[in-house]
Design a protein around this nucleic acid. Sequence first.
DNA 1: TTGACATGCAACTATTTGGTTGCCTATTAT
DNA 2: ATAATAGGCAACCAAATAGTTGCATGTCAA
Lengths: 104, 104
Amino acid sequence: MDEVFKALADASRRSLLDRLHAKNGQTLNELCEGLSMTRQAVTKHLVILEEADLVTIVRQGREKLHYLNPVPIHQIGERWIRKFERGKLAALSELKRQLEKRDE
Amino acid sequence: MDEVFKALADASRRSLLDRLHAKNGQTLNELCEGLSMTRQAVTKHLVILEEADLVTIVRQGREKLHYLNPVPIHQIGERWIRKFERGKLAALSELKRQLEKRDE
DNA sequence: TTGACATGCAACTATTTGGTTGCCTATTAT
DNA sequence: ATAATAGGCAACCAAATAGTTGCATGTCAA
């Protein structure tokens, strides 16, 4: 879980996930196109995404195809974000009460 | 949005949010209890959480009360995670097809 | 009013991170 | 066979991060 949060912390990596969401199964070179960093930098980001299990690779000849795995993202939604949505309204109203109390 | 992802990337900060979720409106010293880092380290984490608008503070005398703001977490769920959940099944089946194709 | 308590500020440090360059290897096409 | 293509590896670098220590300030209670 920590690895997933860490992987998602970088905007370049999130944009790689976006690109895979738009078009799945891209090669490394495809994913490098239009980006202002070297292929090696992109490789490093993809390794981090693989280690967080957000991307799965399939080697085909000299090419490396990258596939998005949406499961960890879904799990963050289910196991982490939802927890804070329960009681969301309660938290906000408590804060509001406190802010008003300050000016008494 | 980037600030929120960055703020959530650290396990100590996520656990601070958890603690505020369990008991809202805690002081700095309260939040430090039981943690194996100095008060100053906790302060730095809280500043990052404030800047990401995940925590709101209310000063009361010499104390500083911390309140959880669940809105940015909710927004990540809505604006980011949901996007990847649409088409989740499609992505997985495409990957499966590709993995099988490899062994033909 | 003086001491205890809650927090703030600044300087410093070690480690991690995001990126680079240079070169090497494996596969495909001519 | 050989050149072009796709990717891998390792060393290096600068900046950001997570933490520390030491001291200062503001507030409350005896």
